[in-house]
């Protein structure tokens, strides 16, 4: 298992990188390499050119924009894990990142790489979907923003063009005191989850849910917002009964089936994990109350 022959490029600037992308017909961007390198080793991909963006300093930042945190595409998963800013402002991301692979892979793996690879059960795309992130992609002579909801075109297929690359990810913040939970089920710690659920809740003084975001990963071909659950929560007061009943709607999602899990099992996990996620998120919201599921 050795990578196929290719021509290697290591540009020092975004302009240089997107220039190469524009000129080369069959090129691949090498970010953290935690997905592309195995695919090269196994020869699942056969690029003529590999463009390594590890030497572009402009892509490795976390910036506080007040109402959002903005991430450079090459920010590494371990940097997200160890960021106080992320822990404080996007606690959902902090909880999710600890379930991404292992320390050795988080040291290399990147946010932009995870969004470009777009595995249906990967944690960072789910968090981006839950938080309504915006992804900036650049190509030679231009840039555009893509709402996370519009990023997946299908299984592991982002909607940007072959000559575009992810440069920035803007993650809007929820108000202080919001409830959050990222729960997943994997056979072994650090494996890709079979199914995950990401929950965000805003809860008013009286304990009523005023805003809800529920995303399941690993069920459809990409992370999915479950609007049937979100809509059913609005204006309601959180309770074990409510969460148990409403999470059942996850069983209606059209689910993938593969050698690892049949569709009914993913639907079942989506319902169970969403129920747990809702209870955890509501318990954590500053206006919420402790919910104990039976």
């Amino acid at each position: 298992m050795k990578p196929p022959p290719f021509t290697f490029h290591d540009p020092r600037s975004i302009d240089e990188a997107v220039g190469l992308l524009a000129e080369k017909d069959n090129a691949k961007i090498l970010a953290g390499g935690q997905s592309l390198m195995p695919m090269l080793n196994m020869r699942f991909v056969l690029p003529d050119d590999v463009i390594d963006i590890n030497n572009i300093d402009d892509l490795t930042y976390i910036r506080d924009d007040g109402d959002a945190l903005v991430f450079g595409g090459m920010i590494r998963q371990h940097e997200i894990e160890s960021s106080d800013l992320v822990a404080q402002k996007i606690p959902l991301m902090r909880e999710a990142i600890l379930q991404v692979g292992h320390r050795q892979t988080r040291n290399r793996g990147t946010f932009g790489g995870s969004l470009s690879h777009l595995d249906p059960s990967a944690e960072l795309p789910s968090v981006s979907m839950a938080q309504d992130a915006t992804i900036t992609v650049r190509k030679r002579g231009g840039a555009r923003d893509i709402a996370m909801a519009d990023l997946p075109m299908g299984y592991m297929t982002p909607s940007f063009e072959l000559d575009e690359m992810v440069t920035d990810i803007r993650v809007p913040l929820w108000p202080d005191g919001h409830g959050y939970a990222f729960v997943e089920f994997a056979r072994r710690h650090g494996d890709y989850a079979i199914t995950s659920s990401a929950v965000l809740l805003d809860v008013s003084d009286g304990g009523k849910i005023t805003r809800a975001s529920v995303t399941v990963g690993g069920v459809g071909p990409s992370p999915l917002r479950v609007t049937a659950v979100e809509d059913g929560l609005l204006g309601e007061t959180g309770s074990a009964e409510l969460f148990t009943e409403i999470a059942e709607k996850c069983r209606d999602i059209d689910a993938m089936e593969d050698v690892y899990a049949p569709a009914w099992y993913r639907q079942h996990l989506a319902a169970v994990l969403t129920r747990r996620g809702l209870a955890k998120a509501f318990s954590r919201a500053s206006n919420g109350t402790e919910i104990n599921l039976k």
């Binding site: 390499g33 935690q34 390198m37 320390r103 050795q104 892979t105 040291n107 290399r108």
Partner: peptide
């Protein structure tokens, strides 16, 4: 920092 050396190119 730990890294899996099979998931990096030597040139990197």
């Amino acid at each position: 920092k730990t890294a899996r050396s099979c998931l990096m190119l030597a040139v990197q």
